[in-house]
């Protein structure tokens, strides 16, 4: 156990990874109730990046982010989903710094300053909910139409491969990753949905049936700059043969989710920053 782990028993020690293949340093945020931070960190490492743990109560968020090339807000049930999924996490000290670094306005209001480059930020599941609560992405999430918690392999179509998190995919490519959520029904007003469609901001769409009632089969969206992406299904659970969804190659061999993480590593290496 490192000293850090003694102080913060809930946060993972990601330093025992193998060799780092690129210089990409990607922060993985842990809130109380976050579940998938270790899987997200593992996905980062498998994609050749270095995963850096970020604690939600980090006293100097801006400083912590300054040495990072990207940030992932993983899935789970931050603050037990109390009030609304992601609503309390949005007001965690670290979030204002992330909002500012991503190019949002809420952080600027807090006097943290914004980053012109726009830090790549990925929100997965509960992370996506936090990004909508933070107004980095439009719309919101309500309970699945079926009211059932869903856990299944899900086919998605990559609708926009121009974002920091999807550039390694080809446009229209279909990928299979796990979907597991309670509040996964994406909703927004018609005007917002039309704008998302018109500007090509719908990044992932459900294929083979809409699992949760999301408007226009939307599974993931991006902001206009393409640095912020939110998606409901879990690419970090489809990065290693033997532990992923079933694929044509065999049982649990699917690794389609890895492309999300290699995309951001490539974006960083390619000087998109």
């Amino acid at each position: 156990m490192t000293a850090q782990n003694t102080e913060l028993p809930l946060i993972g020690d990601y330093s025992t990874a193998g060799p780092v293949l690129t210089g990409a340093r990607i922060g993985v945020v842990t809130f109380p109730g976050t579940l998938d931070d270790r899987d997200a960190a593992r996905a980062v490492r498998l994609a050749g990046g270095e995963a850096v743990p970020l604690w939600h109560a980090e006293p100097d968020g801006a400083a912590a982010l300054s040495s990072l090339d990207a940030v992932i807000i993983p899935g789970g049930f931050s603050y037990g989903d109390y009030l609304r999924a992601g609503a309390i996490a949005r007001f965690a000290p670290l979030m204002d710094a992330i909002i500012a670094a991503a190019g949002g306005t809420a952080g600027n209001d807090a006097g943290l300053g914004g980053s012109a480059a726009g830090l790549p930020v990925l929100g997965i599941c509960n992370g996506f909910q936090i990004l909508t609560e933070s107004h980095l992405l439009p719309g919101s999430m309500i309970k699945n139409e079926s009211l059932k918690f869903l856990c299944q392999d899900q086919v998605l179509r990559v609708e926009n491969n121009a974002t920091a998190w999807t550039r390694e995919f080809s446009a229209g490519e279909e990928i299979t990753v796990p979907l597991k959520n309670q509040d996964g029904q994406y909703v927004a007003d018609e005007k917002t949905l039309d704008r998302l469609e018109g500007e090509g901001l719908v990044t992932f769409r459900y294929v083979g049936g809409n699992p949760n009632g999301s408007r226009r089969d939307i599974a993931g969206i991006t902001n206009a700059a393409g640095n912020v992406v939110g998606l409901m299904p879990h690419p970090e659970h489809a990065v290693e043969p033997g532990f992923g969804p079933d694929s044509a190659a065999g049982m649990r061999l699917g690794t389609d989710g890895l492309g999300i993480f290699t995309s951001v590593v490539a974006s960083i290496a390619g000087g998109a920053q």
């Binding site: 007001f91 909508t132 719309g139 919101s140 309500i142 927004a188």
Partner: peptide, 8 residues
Amino acid sequence: ELLSNPVI
């Protein structure tokens, strides 16, 4: 700002 989400 907190108790409700104006989107929904």
